[in-house]
Amino acid sequence: MAETGFVIDRVSFAYGEKQALDDLRLAIVPGRFYGLVGPNGCGKSTLLDLLMANRRPAAGRIEYNGRCLRQYGRRELARQLALVPQEFTIHFAFTVLEVVLMGRHPYLPRFGAATGDDLAIAHQAMAAIGIGDFADRYVTELSGGEKQRVVVARALAQETPVLMLDEATSNLDVGHTMEIFNVARQRVRERGETVIAVVHNLDLAAAYCDELIFLKEGRVAACGPTRETLTPAVIEEVFGVASRVSHDDFSNALQVSFRYGG
């Protein structure tokens, strides 16, 4: 299977009458950190759902590694793509280890139990995100930030070449946010994995993403390397606000400033 990533070809999607994505054309190549940026309701989460094959495009097609997405089986796809959703509620008192081990589900036979390898991978994932000593705690008793890291560990345990973060850190403080993005960044650098992250904070996007995809009203407004696309003109076009983009020495990345408070 050729590792060519995603090819999104003239894809449209609508919720009832409401057009969510319109004639989208994009290529997402392996080994890069992608940021998906745009105003609320511009179709970012919908695009992730289409890429995850949770929803089917109304028109057009999406290829992953040279094959149409709908030709993949669910389990096969779960060995390729992992998702960290924004919100995570669980109503039953599973332990953290049990939830992280659910990431191994696509690899287990129906009546097979998790093997020592699966446990090792789960523990490695928990250690990577700094929750190594959480294994026996109940997920129902964790704080929001702790829970979100459990979900990330679960997605890491899935060991997929592609990791998608859907506003995975929007409820977290800056420390926890960096922790999650650092792990994602590390996976891209060391393993050549692909990360596609929906990000609202443009400074965060600038610091971590190799490529940015700006969406506006279901269309691609701009896409390309962060240095080229994160410009006042694009921000003005997509968000309708004036900004200044400059290099910041301390973060060694682009930084976006706005004139707050009118």
């Binding site: 949770n54 796809l77 992992a82 995570f88 669980i90 990431g103 589900h105």
Partner: peptide, 11 residues
């Protein structure tokens, strides 16, 4: 029990 979006993504 993780919710539909998560369980779909887990195969």
């Amino acid at each position: 029990s993780l919710g539909g979006r998560s369980s779909d993504s887990l195969g």
